[in-house]
Amino acid sequence: MVEQKPHIVEYLTNIYVWIALATLTIITIWVSEFDLKLLTVTVALGVASIKATLVLMYFMHLRFDSKILTIMVLVTMIVFLSLIVFTFFDYSYRS
């Protein structure tokens, strides 16, 4: 059986991550002031993805857990992304 080893994340690390998340939120709001045309959604989703990654890695401890969990999350993401890509591929060719 796999032993549960306690992983204590330092307070300071958590605070840094929190500051990073807050900063990214501010960026999202700030960027919405500009008209980026097609890039609007890309930028918003990009920033949100970085935030989600930070939460997953630090607050949800993926960084400190066994690699297999990270692989599982990645596989899930890849499947999910492919489903969206395939669906919109059809739409891009419909007139």
């Binding site: 492919s82 489903l83 395939f86 591929f89 059809d90 739409y91 891009s92 060719y93 419909r94």
Partner: peptide, 21 residues
């Protein structure tokens, strides 16, 4: 198995390239 669902929609008005893929 995740990437073949479109074969149920060949006659449903899906675009040509999507049908072939």
């Amino acid at each position: 198995g995740y990437f073949v669902w479109g074969h149920h929609m060949f006659t449903a008005g899906m675009s040509g390239p999507a049908r072939i893929i």
